[in-house]
Design a protein around this nucleic acid. Structure first.
Lengths: 249, 249
DNA sequence: CGGTGTTTTGACGTCGGTCAATATGTGTGG
DNA sequence: CCACACATATTGACCGACGTCAAAACACCG
């Protein structure tokens, strides 16, 4: 992989993110996963020249709900939670975005303030891509538009599925499902623990329940031999069993 | 408005929908509300020539979950419920589509089988637009792509909001919210009853609860003077009061 | 080693789902 | 127009699921 050192840029937004080294988008692997792959050589070059690579540490905020976004963020590594604050003061996590995904595109395309906030669950490496390039490419390269459209269509379908689950499944089913999701999307380490470790509160906020309820159900799963835990780390002990829980026994 | 009679077309799908008279898309008012307005004269002409106007009666199905869609449907009048069946055997209504909205676009764009089914809540008049025209326009006219993107971005935002509500609000709050939604989106008749009348079961399926719970809460609202009912018709008696319920008292 | 934040556990009450039983429509054929 | 058949609305009873308020047990960090 070709790397290149860049001089420091003063155009970076002054959040507490560190600007890191520069890689060329043309040779960035994560691009294969997102809509940027539909860009032409020229367009990609422009993106590469104007993008800003940043490091975001665990817990830090990428952008807040209601904020105006001047561009999108492409995730190179780590995981971000996209959430929205409800009137009751609790966050609802709407999506977890990982390597190769682009966040903020909805707001940029709709030219609205962001409806969600994005925070790092992990240490992350992200690229900020100014919106000008996105919109001009959108206006001139139909392939890019179609590709973005496809991704958005996919997000929309996933959102529909979440709505169905929230409406029709019990908290217990949704928690079991969440763990299966974490396994299939982020994998497990050599000891069998889920690679992505979420706090109990985050899990509760994904599922839409109280932290204590979440904890209680996790320990119930432990007693039944479906899960193992070590601190906040969780391992799936009986995948079939969890799937049965999701189906409703 | 210019009307035109068309000869009968044998290409129509043989569902139990009636093919009606033909109007020109160029002069169709509902087009103003959807992405078709970004089409050029030529493109719109093609749409107009190949579209099929159909009548769908209350309760009939426009398409089923898992069905392959050969095009999209533009709603000229009436309301459709987009729903998905959950493993527990109950429908979750994900969206209500009304005049000017286009349904089925997600599946056509993603080139997937439909993830939702669409049924008529009302008597409806819809136009079927073959997917070829949609996709070729998408591939050649960037403005159209952007416009579709904007609409999809809007749908996605709404879906996010629904997720937050499902996760963080009680059934009571969601029901109150549903009635306010019905009022602001579909209005009320001269007697103050909501124009769009949903069965208690449909309301329950929008909100994600059991029909009986829904009924029980409606009668509670009636006792508190927030709602009036007459058969299945519902009138909002105290909008402020309902809003307070949504906020959580 | 104390301080701070997270995980666990208990207790308790309400919310909401399920199973009936009843009432009220609503449509259909006679 | 009536009467039966069937769908929808309503109500009651019952109980498990879930949220809330503490308080205790751990873990992590300077």
């Amino acid at each position: 992989m070709q790397l290149r050192q860049s001089k420091h840029r003063t155009t970076a937004k002054n959040r507490k993110m560190k600007e890191g080294m520069r890689t060329r988008c043309e040779s960035c692997i994560v691009r294969q996963f997102n809509a940027l792959r539909a860009m032409g050589k020229e367009e990609l070059k422009k993106v590469s020249d104007s993008k800003i690579t940043k490091t975001v540490k665990k817990g830090e905020t990428i952008f807040e709900e209601g904020e105006k976004l001047d561009g999108v963020f492409c995730v190179r590594s780590g995981v971000s939670k996209l959430s929205k604050l409800s009137e009751n003061g609790k966050d609802q996590i709407v999506k977890l975005a990982t390597k190769g995904e682009v966040i903020g595109q909805r707001s940029v395309i709709a030219e609205e303030f962001s409806n969600l906030s994005a925070k790092a669950v992990d240490d992350m490496e992200i690229c900020f891509i100014p919106k000008d390039i996105i919109t001009t490419t959108l206006n001139t390269n139909p392939n890019f538009g179609v590709e973005v459209l496809r991704h958005m269509a996919h997000d929309l379908k996933e959102a529909d599925d979440v709505i169905v689950n929230m409406g029709q499944k019990t908290v217990k089913q949704r928690i079991a499902q969440a763990f299966l999701y974490l396994k299939s999307n982020f994998g497990e380490d050599k000891d069998g623990f889920l690679t992505l470790t979420l706090s109990r509160e985050d899990i509760a906020n994904v599922v839409g329940t109280a932290t204590e309820s979440c904890i209680r159900i996790i320990s119930e799963f432990k007693k039944k031999g479906l899960l193992e835990t070590s601190g906040k780390k969780v391992a799936i002990a009986d995948e079939k069993g969890l799937e049965e829980v999701v189906e409703g026994f």
